[in-house]
Amino acid sequence: MRILILGTGGMANQHAKHFAAIEGVTLAGGVDVDPARVEAFNQTHGIERGFGSLDAALAWGEFDAIANVTPDSIHHPTTMAALNAGKHVFCEKPLATDYAKAMEMTETAERLGLINMVNLTYRNVAQLQKAREIVQSGQVGTVKHFEASYLQSWLVSKAWGDWRTESQWLWRLSKKHGSNGVLGDIGVHILDFAAYGAGSDFSKVFCRLETFSKAENNKIGEYDLDANDSFAMTAQLENGALGVIHATRWATGHFNELRLRIYGEKGSVEIQHRHDWSKLLTCLGDDIETGTWTEVAVDPVPTNYMRFVEAVRSGQNLEPSFRHATNIQKVLDLATVTDRDRSEHKV
């Protein structure tokens, strides 16, 4: 299988590394509008061919699939071009900047019979996979309540670099540079984390968004710092469970941390995931009477990269699919609407 890496920024290095490590996969080329960047990327990963545009790469065409690692606002036009050229697509999240675009991408991929997956990276967390298995087995009983959070601290810490001077962070704070803020950037992850772990999609949402002052006139160079920094959401799942979800970039002391707690009538599970460790805790059976929590050991699971290759080879689409990501995008869009209307909306 031959795969093209479209976009050669920071996250593209993860795609190249993971795909290259899979037996039988070849990195066929790199694409970027910045010639120096694509040249450096190709040298790092031993890729022979570089292209300055997707059109040029598609004209060459000697590859099976595309890993789309372009900025959020570019996902739609580039994915549509790739699909219409008959290429399978593994797209970074969010799939698109709005529900309508995401649905067009989904329907096109399905109509053409092409493999389509979105890199919701926290599906790679083995503890989340095991928690979902426990919930779906009925061990916690009917799910009644859940709480989920995604905490980052790069607006108050330089552990990942200085956002005031680096474009890789500044664009995430600017609507005109294609960002939907924390809601679009990491909200998509925690919504998927919560729904997947609880084994149910969303039915109702209400969200509040906040953008805090970060610089004089909330502007640095060409970047207007107008994208949301924090959100707090109440949500109900199709299974009836009620819960809260929140995310922020102002969580001092938390570099990159996701948590999910799922409470059922017979027991509970909790997933803690950080950049350096993950834990799964359960309170089941007789332990619910003493409030005793037990850490559960889990085995590694196949990554999204591995499963995309498996899907292309088998011809059978796997999750997380474009359609799933489109459903999440609908919730993200509604979150913005509910913030404006100050009222709950049905999904």
Rank of each mutant, 00 (worst) to 15 (best):
A241S: 03
W250R: 11
A232C: 08
N239Q: 10
N239H: 08
G243M: 00
A232R: 05
Q236C: 03
D224W: 05
I245L: 02
L242E: 14
A232L: 10
F231R: 03
N239P: 05
A227L: 07
D229Y: 12
D229L: 10
A235L: 00
G253A: 08
L242Y: 06
T248F: 04
R249Y: 15
Q236D: 13
M233D: 01
A227S: 15
G253V: 15
L225R: 09
T252N: 06
D229K: 08
T252Q: 12
A241W: 14
D229P: 03
A227T: 10
W250D: 11
G243F: 01
G240L: 02
F231E: 07
F231M: 04
L237C: 00
I245E: 01
T248S: 14
R249V: 12
A232H: 11
R249H: 15
F231V: 06
M233N: 03
A227V: 09
H246Y: 11
D224G: 05
F231G: 08
I245F: 02
A251F: 06
H246A: 14
A247V: 06
A241R: 06
D229R: 07
L225I: 15
H246F: 04
A251N: 10
N228M: 12
D224E: 15
G240S: 03
A227K: 12
G240R: 07
Y223F: 15
Y223E: 13
H246L: 06
A247E: 10
T234W: 01
M233F: 03
E238G: 07
T248A: 03
V244E: 02
E238N: 13
N228T: 11
G240D: 04
D226M: 14
V244F: 03
S230D: 14
Q236H: 01
A232V: 11
W250K: 09
L242H: 07
T234E: 02
N228D: 15
E238I: 06
G253K: 06
Y223H: 15
T252V: 14
